[in-house]
């Protein structure tokens, strides 16, 4: 039994503790905002927070969240108005949108740890998140905008 909190709600996970958090969120809890992209921590589509820090949910087992707080895109802000989310909309970042949950969670974690990142730090921080539609230019601008508001 793995006790954990997901978006503020307490859960007791009684499955295989090796199950990646991604599939617990999507298939067991029905939190579909976190996406599957590669299964190997190569693309960042599955990024969620454990105790506020970005992790790749496709390779992180539920056991790693034992007694911890998992936050997904659905729980980042009750109204969807986290500064990063607002910046994403004001820059019209998404195209297909599929990677954007992960991008936003990564950016939110980056700014929580480093509220005033340099350009290089933004690029380093977002390097693990692939956007196949190629929205990087707007992602970069949106992170800069969000940094000015965090």
């Amino acid at each position: 039994m793995v006790p954990l909190t997901v978006n503020g709600v307490s859960h007791e996970f009684d499955g295989d503790p090796n199950m990646p958090i991604l599939w617990y969120l999507r298939d067991e809890l029905g939190l579909a905002g976190t996406k599957f992209g590669c299964g190997m921590a190569l693309c960042g589509a599955c990024t969620v927070h454990i105790d506020g820090r970005a992790i790749r949910a496709c390779v992180t087992p539920v056991s790693a969240a034992d007694s911890k707080e998992v936050t997904t895109i659905e729980g980042l802000d009750p109204d969807g108005n986290h500064p990063v989310q607002r910046a994403w909309r004001s820059h019209n970042v998404p195209q297909c949108g599929y990677c954007q949950s992960g991008q936003i969670m990564q950016a939110a974690s980056l700014l929580a740890e480093n509220p005033a990142p340099s350009d290089e730090e933004v690029i380093d921080g977002m390097q693990g998140n692939i956007c196949r539609c190629g929205t990087y230019q707007r992602i970069f601008a949106a992170v800069r905008t969000a940094a000015s508001e965090v």
Binding site: L31, A32, G33, T34, T72, I73, E74, L76, G80, Q85, W88, R89, N92, V93, P94, G97, Q100, S101, I104
Partner: peptide, 9 residues
């Protein structure tokens, strides 16, 4: 779809 795409919806 901007809002939904930025909120996981």
């Amino acid at each position: 779809d901007n809002f939904d795409m930025s909120t996981g919806g």
